[in-house]
Amino acid sequence: MSNPILTITNLTKRFGGVSAVSKIDLEVMPKETLAIIGPNGAGKTTFYNMVSGRMQPTEGKIMLDGKDITGLPPHKISRLGVSRSFQLNNIFPEMTVQENVEVVLSAYHGHSRKLFNIASRNTGIQTEAVEYLKRLGIDELKGQRAEVISYGDKRLLEIAMVLAIRPKLVLLDEPTAGMTPDETRRTTRLIKALAESGDYTFLITEHDMDVVFDLADRILVMHRGENLFAGTPEEVKNHPEVRTAYLGEEEDEPVEEANT
């Protein structure tokens, strides 16, 4: 049994008197895919924000590969191997799709410190960027401005950028939100293939239960900032409290239509 890649103990975030995340303990093993589910406001994004360094935890500890990363700034945590996507697309809108990935790659390789090269002649990085785009199946869009491609493609582009810093741990925040059913199927297939390649460890938050049950090795159910239940997809499906607290609520909610 190998050591966990991420160990979280007693992680808590309070805003004023309100706890957004409260006393979460979690271990993530290398190469597994762990889904975090819970209704809106359950604290999933706040949880991500703390792990990725966007917010300081009020209490608790985050260890990555045995190293304490609690409260480090985002760029340091990213350097140590945690990479994340956002619920709202977070790309460089005025650059081409390929350049979006090139920026991340030149950051990763340290080319970003070069003042006197010509970026557009950096063929090594360009080839690599196209490879990442191919992996996500969007390489034919490489010359387009990122702001004009479809919503779903933007999400895939962001995943390509997330993967380009060769992370040990990938946090995806609702990767299929707002996608058409077709795009959702495509994205799920892609993430599944990436997970099965054995190169990545994924943390995924997701509203679409089909996607969750399709991808996850384990599921953490959050409710009002707390750990409600953690277990295999089977256990989660059959857990009575989870069914009422979350899965039941899911059925009441109208199925989100694609909004692109």
């Binding site: 760029h75 977070n90 790309i91 460089f92 920026v103 950051a107 070069k114 090269n117 950096n122």
Partner: peptide, 24 residues
């Protein structure tokens, strides 16, 4: 036009993404 210049343009468009790519 350098890689550094490209990062500057990236910072203008989206500083957050740049820091999540590991740059200060």
């Amino acid at each position: 036009r350098s890689s550094f210049g490209m990062i500057l343009k990236a910072i203008r468009q989206n500083p957050e993404r740049v820091s999540f790519a590991g740059l200060n």
